[in-house]
């Protein structure tokens, strides 16, 4: 079942940090939750037709084009930025040496 190391790894992948106490708690809870959801393994995998149900799925694309006047939403969106330089979003340096 789940180990503290595994849950720590998941947290790293999901970009959140867990305090030690929380790590222990989550690990215990994961055991119970995973034991429950593992009952899914009893489902017999249907094949072919049986796997498809309802309306067939398809991707919906729109025509390429100009959806709105350039800059129409710039100020509204930029007003939410935590830090901005003009109309640009300011972030830390992405590539480091």
């Amino acid at each position: 079942m789940a180990t503290v190391e595994e849950v720590k790894k998941l947290a790293t992948l999901a970009r959140v940090r867990l305090a030690d106490a929380e790590l222990e708690k989550f690990t215990k809870e994961f055991d119970a939750i995973l034991a429950y959801v593992e009952t899914i393994s009893a489902v017999e995998m249907p094949e072919g037709e049986a796997l498809r149900s309802g309306q067939p799925l398809r991707n919906v694309m729109r025509e390429d084009g100009v959806p709105h006047a350039p800059g129409a939403y710039t100020e509204k969106l930029a007003a939410q930025f935590p830090a901005r330089g003009g109309d640009a979003l300011s972030v830390k340096q992405i590539l480091t040496h």
Binding site: L10, A14, R15, V16, E29, F30
Partner: peptide, 21 residues
């Protein structure tokens, strides 16, 4: 990491980790 750790509550983090798993 800091933004997500401060921003998300316990249940949200729990489900994000379950989903990642």
């Amino acid at each position: 990491i800091k933004s997500r750790t401060e921003g998300f509550g316990e249940e949200t983090r729990r489900r994000i980790l379950l989903g990642t798993f």
